[in-house]
Write a protein that binds this DNA or RNA. Structure first.
Lengths: 252, 252
DNA sequence: GACTATTATGACGATTCGTCAATTTACTCG
DNA sequence: CGAGTAAATTGACGAATCGTCATAATAGTC
């Protein structure tokens, strides 16, 4: 069950391979950290344990991550990279602008459920205790990725404007719209587990809630076609199929 | 600058006072913890520091909080209690149902800005690392308070139904609506700082974003009067005045 | 005023973090 | 190919923090 032989031919002769090798190991360390997180919980993730699980020493690990918190931030960066991939796939589905917006929301939802651990990392990484002790470069990475994600959202909104599917009156900027949708998606996905755990709703699936939230918001905006004039339920399912069948991919 | 003389007459003779005295001290400890949090950051909050700042020993502190994480959860309980007070005040403003819904959103926003530290505690307390090491009783307290808060929201929605200001077609339950508004409010307030820090929007105030988000969502729901037919901007300001002038209260 | 139950104390062991001098490895060049 | 140098790795160690527990103090009772 140990899938981590070095396996890479470490016959790196020119210094170009050094960086690549280092990055591969970092990826492996992140994978291990994620495993520990899933199996032992957040309190169980210690640097010594990661050291034991890996094949390098603690010093080397601190050569990659300047602190335990930096490791969490690194995991969040990894999360965002995967989200980015999902977003790209989501935008490859065809349809009018509102369908594509829905696809992005689905991608976000999909990530939050298929990778709950990483999604929680994202939450933890936003916490002051973590931010305070993460390296500046890692924080910059995270910021850059977030900006890229938001860029995708803005693209869809611009498409909607071009299609004349929405009209931005009364000083409502593209940034504002993007932010509000981001907030909606973040809240609806992040709060689901806690709410369910406290027995707030019984039968309601997370999917239905997210879809309903998006429809409410986009209807409020007047993004045509309105949910009364279009079957976004089946649109949602079509998107689900399109994204799901692409997910089985690179693992080792 | 030290505002923490015991000051309470500890001439507790009958055992009824014991519990009360203990609770007072717990409140004081929470206040101190919050101070440390503001001044030293999350990484600076250690049990030893709290011990030094207080006038009791470490053992006694661990008599109140079974772990450092339990302390964080206790702070979040404190936050929720204050939120509850704000919600009560918010519901005391007069108006039609949608105005009252707006008042709740304002109360939430107000809390997130006037008590940023406590708001972040709420976020941290939702983190697995904290949940895992908090006492069951404290977690139950938090859950109960959250349920009370949601109860307030449901009240307003029921009022709206009674006023015939909304109609719940297609199996959209009260719980669903409550959840979606909660999610919207949570997201819009929690993400503001990070988004601003990454320079995503320049001039946009948090207030405007929150208000816009609520309007979008409630318009989408068809909650009358729609934002096109009513000046929710001045309504918002009126609520602000009504709540602001009640805030200066109990501190020492 | 003696006696008991409850609470408080802070020194202590256990963990975990993060460092750094010593060592090994990788690469260069004569 | 082998000596020399730069870079990376190691793991023992100090520091900091958590949480405990035997002892001491206090409150309440008879």
């Amino acid at each position: 069950m140990k899938a981590q032989q070095p396996a890479v031919s470490i016959t790196t002769q020119n210094s170009g391979n050094r960086a690549r090798h280092k990055q591969q190991r970092e990826q492996l360390l992140l994978q291990l950290a994620q495993q520990i997180l899933q199996q032992e919980g957040f309190a169980g993730l210690t640097m010594d344990r990661l050291t034991a699980a890996s094949e390098v020493s603690k010093g080397t690990i601190y050569n990659h991550f300047c602190s335990k918190e930096d490791l969490i931030t690194a995991l969040s960066v990894d999360s965002l990279e995967r989200q980015l991939l999902l977003f790209q796939q989501a935008l490859s589905v065809s349809g009018h602008s509102r369908e594509r917006a829905l696809a992005l929301h689905y991608a976000y939802f999909l990530f939050s459920t298929t990778e709950p651990t990483l999604f929680l990392c994202l939450l933890s990484a936003a916490t002051p205790a973590v931010v305070e002790k993460s390296s500046a470069s890692r924080l910059a990475q995270r910021q850059a990725l977030e900006q890229q994600l938001l860029e995708f959202c803005q693209q869809v909104i611009r498409q909607a404007l071009a299609e004349n599917a929405i009209s931005l009156q009364d000083g409502c900027s593209i940034e504002e719209l993007t932010y509000l949708q981001w907030a909606q998606a973040f809240g609806a996905n992040a709060l689901y587990r806690p709410a369910q755990q406290m027995g707030f709703f019984q039968g309601l699936a997370q999917q239905q809630l997210v879809l309903a939230g998006v429809n409410l918001m986009l209807d409020g905006l007047g993004w045509r076609p309105l949910s009364a004039d279009f079957d976004y339920q089946s649109c949602w399912q079509r998107i689900a199929l399109a994204l799901q069948q692409q997910t089985p991919q690179a693992q080792s």
